[in-house]
Amino acid sequence: MKNEWPLWEVFIRGQHGLAHRHVGSLHAPDAEMAVKNARDVYTRRNEGVSIWVVRAGDITASSPGEKEPLFEPSNSKIYRHPTFYDIPDDVGRM
């Protein structure tokens, strides 16, 4: 039981021109088989028009411990949102 196939993360682009989205993972001996398996496992109901597979080991992820330094700074910058600005109704759509 030692020769386990490597793990691949699967990304699918749906019908409507959106970006590829992570849908799950699977095991396969190589990239080609990973795409074939992804088709069977993750697109049985027409979910996608394109598949990406990436070896799970090749993904670098932010760690949960970094959550504050990474994401906290944007909390206070509410002026980045359009709703921060009061524009009179008379100006019309903006």
Binding site: E4, L7, L26, V41, Y42
Partner: peptide, 22 residues
């Protein structure tokens, strides 16, 4: 075939907890 797929989704979810498929 769906049942096989469901098994695979779930195995993958379990693997994220540090247990291997084998």
């Amino acid at each position: 075939q769906d049942e096989a797929g469901h098994g695979l989704y779930l195995y993958c979810a379990a693997e994220t907890l540090g247990v291997s498929r084998d």
